[in-house]
C-alpha cells in the first residue's frame, strides 16, 4: 500500500465523469427500492428478488468493471502509468494499492446502498439486509481484483469484462448449472444465503467452496497483476 499512489488513483477514479456512472448505479437500486415500497410490493420475496437480480446481478459487476479497470486501464492507455512505474517501488505493491482503491470504491458504492435498499423494504428481517450487504462486499472485492487484472492484461479490458459479466455470469451462469460453480455472483449469493435465513434465497454451491473460490480468485488476480506489471513494456501506439 502506497499512500501517494492511492491518492492519485482515487482522484483519477472519482474526480471525473466516471464517478457519475458509479453514483448512477446505486441510485437506480435505491430508486427501485423506493418504487417497490410505494406500490406496496415490499415483501421479503420481492426484496430478495430485487437484490439478487439487480444489486448482485447488475449493479455489482458493473461497479466492478468501472472501478476495477478504471484504476489502471486509462493510465496504461495514455501512458501516465510510467510516472508510477519509473519509481523505486515494487510493482506488486503498485498493483496491491490499485486493487485496494478499486475494492474500497466498489465496496462503498455497493455495500451501503444494498443494505439501505433491503432495510428500506423489510428492515432487518431474516438477515436479508446484512446477508446481501456482505455478499456485495465480498463479490465487489473479487470483481475489483479480476477486472483490475484484465485492465493490466489487455487494452480491451472493459469490453472483455462486460462480455464476461453479461454472457458468462448473466446468461450461462443462470441457465447452465455447471457454470454456476465458476461465477463470482453465485459465490456472493452463497455468502448471502449463509447469513440470511430467508426461504426465498436458495443456492446450490457449498459455502466452503464459495468462500475459498472468492479468496483464491481475489488474491490470485492481484498477485498476477503484480507479476504482469513487473514486465510492463512500453511499445509504440497500437
Amino acid at each position: 500500500m502506497n499512500g501517494v499512489i492511492a491518492g492519485i488513483t482515487y482522484r483519477a477514479l472519482l474526480g471525473r465523469r466516471r464517478v457519475w456512472l458509479l453514483v448512477l448505479l446505486p441510485a437506480v437500486l435505491l430508486a427501485l427500492a423506493v418504487l417497490l415500497r410505494v406500490i406496496g410490493a415490499d415483501g421479503e420475496r420481492a426484496t430478495v428478488e430485487l437484490l439478487r437480480t439487480f444489486a448482485i446481478g447488475v449493479m455489482l459487476p458493473l461497479l466492478g468493471v468501472i472501478a476495477g479497470t478504471g484504476v489502471i486501464a486509462p493510465e496504461i492507455d495514455d501512458g501516465t502509468i510510467v510516472h508510477l512505474l519509473s519509481k523505486p517501488i515494487s510493482r506488486p505493491v503498485i498493483a496491491q494499492t490499485k486493487f485496494l482503491v478499486a475494492a474500497s470504491v466498489v465496496a462503498a458504492f455497493a455495500t451501503v446502498p444494498t443494505f439501505a435498499a433491503a432495510y428500506l423494504l423489510i428492515g432487518l428481517e431474516a438477515g436479508v439486509a446484512s446477508g446481501f450487504a456482505l455478499a456485495a462486499l465480498v463479490g465487489g472485492v473479487a470483481y475489483a481484483a479480476v477486472f483490475m487484472l484484465l485492465g493490466v492484461v489487455t487494452r480491451h479490458a472493459v469490453t472483455i469484462g462486460i462480455i464476461y459479466a453479461v454472457i458468462w455470469e448473466g446468461v450461462v451462469g443462470n441457465f447452465v448449472p455447471g457454470a454456476r460453480r465458476y461465477s463470482v455472483q453465485q459465490w456472493a449469493q452463497t455468502v448471502a444465503d449463509q447469513v440470511s435465513s430467508s426461504a426465498f434465497l436458495t443456492t446450490d454451491i457449498g459455502i466452503g467452496f464459495a468462500v475459498s473460490a472468492l479468496v483464491v480468485v481475489s488474491v490470485g488476480a492481484v498477485l498476477w497483476a503484480g507479476r504482469r506489471l513487473r514486465s510492463f513494456s512500453l511499445t509504440g501506439d497500437e
Partner: peptide, 24 residues
C-alpha cells in the same frame, strides 16, 4: 473504456429495471 461501460450500463440498467419492476 468509459464509453463502453456507460453504454452497457444503460443496457443492463434498462433491462434490469424492466425485469425487476415487471416481475414484482
Amino acid at each position: 473504456g468509459l464509453g463502453v461501460a456507460a453504454v452497457i450500463a444503460f443496457y443492463l440498467l434498462s433491462t434490469g429495471v424492466s425485469t425487476a419492476v415487471g416481475r414484482v
